[in-house]
Design a protein around this nucleic acid. Sequence first.
RNA 1: GGAGAGAUGGCUGAGUGGUCGAAAGCAACGCUUUGCUAAAGCGUCGUAGCCCUUAAAGGCUACCGAGGGUUCGAAUCCCUCUCUCUCCGCCA
Length: 425
Amino acid sequence: MLDIRIIREQTDRVKARLRLRGGDGWQSIDEVLSLDESRRKAETEKQSLQSERNRVSRDIGIAKKQGGDTAGVEARMRAIGDRITQLDREAGELDARQEALLLGIPNLPHEACPEGQSAEDNPEVRVWGAKPDFKFEPKDHVTLGKSLGLFDFESAVKITGSAFVVYRGQGARLERALINFLLDLHTREHGYTEILPPFLVNAASLTGTTQLPKFSDQLYHCPEDGLYLAPTAEVPVTNLHRDEIVDTASLPIKYTAYTPCFRREAGAAGVGTRGLIRMHQFDKVELVKITLPDQSMEELEKLTADAEKVLQLLGLHYRVIELCTGDIGFGSAKTYDIEVWAPGQGTYLEVSSCSNFGDYQARRMKLRYKDPETKKNVFAHTLNGSGTALARLYVALLETCQREDGSIALPAALQAYFGAAEIRG
RNA sequence: GGAGAGAUGGCUGAGUGGUCGAAAGCAACGCUUUGCUAAAGCGUCGUAGCCCUUAAAGGCUACCGAGGGUUCGAAUCCCUCUCUCUCCGCCA
């Protein structure tokens, strides 16, 4: 959520930054401002009447104790009370509309975010490794998985539906090995604290991390209980500190969490048609940071590096791109995407999106720290990124590490976790 | 699912219609003193919004789990909801 004061005081700059996103978010700025003005007017009148009521009511109490007749004043106060009720309703309604609009306005792209209209304009930041050179025609992961018996989609269709998968045997073990490898890497080598959160979350949490109210169509919802399946561990983990004033000395807070992620993928093209690449449920190990404002950009670089380390240790070729203003996510001020090479697909697959949200999420969830200098409560900065998503990592791993005979040669870093050096049918 | 109890400031905990934003204690912070690894005295010590200000200062309003209601006036009375605890039931 944007700071209404900044919208008030730097209207032109706010609009200009929002325009760089290419959407129509900036168009509601004028409406927000006019609501804000009406709201404050109603508020001010209400408060001065409340002040009068407080004062007179006190006098009535005193007069009554002395046996005075207060019927006349009481009648007048009744009228003022009615007016207060009316103004309160007005102010409340204006406030709700202003809040609703503000929740629908995306974050301002950071000055460091490259300008551009669409994904076409995303600059490549760096490349690690190179596309593997196969002496044979590499197979895709669906073919490899089928011949090795690692997973199957038909069973998932029977028990659930399309775009779900059942891992079996060595396939299930590989998924588990990857999860353990990732969590150990981030906790032991990178200093993150492991969290195992609930997979169902409430509406307040989803509002805090921006999935609600705007993206409700992407969420699985249990209306009887008011709960949603978490689309990413970002939601439960960042919201651990919602409505808190965190100890300044504890910053930066660094969490990592494994969770399955549930996404309806409404309107997404090709759901369920390309193997493991886009699923309604997939595993992910997430990285979340809460930092001081002046450290968040530096922490974003570190977080991205922590995610990249995964691919380096697994020997998977990848590139890092920076999302331009026209392509960054709703709440993000700056984002790096990490894309791993999948030889069987002949494309790069996004396995991590590392974002600095500035104070945008923190303001929504009232996540603050006390500035030791000024003694004021200040909104912290929040960051997150996948470290990494599992399904696509699995795809890249199978397709990169395949041998001509269809077996998989596991990277050294994974062998102890998997309990073998290779996968054979 | 059934029955009961409860929810007050960082914590403990008073307060059942009228200067209560809220006693007291603890913790924290600052100063002073004694001196030593602790103690005493004094002071400060919630959050947010609005107004006025370049700002500081100041004024006002709201908040005692959440939302409604009664009343001139609500932490206090009434209703609904949420959460916590205890017991029963069910259950991995």
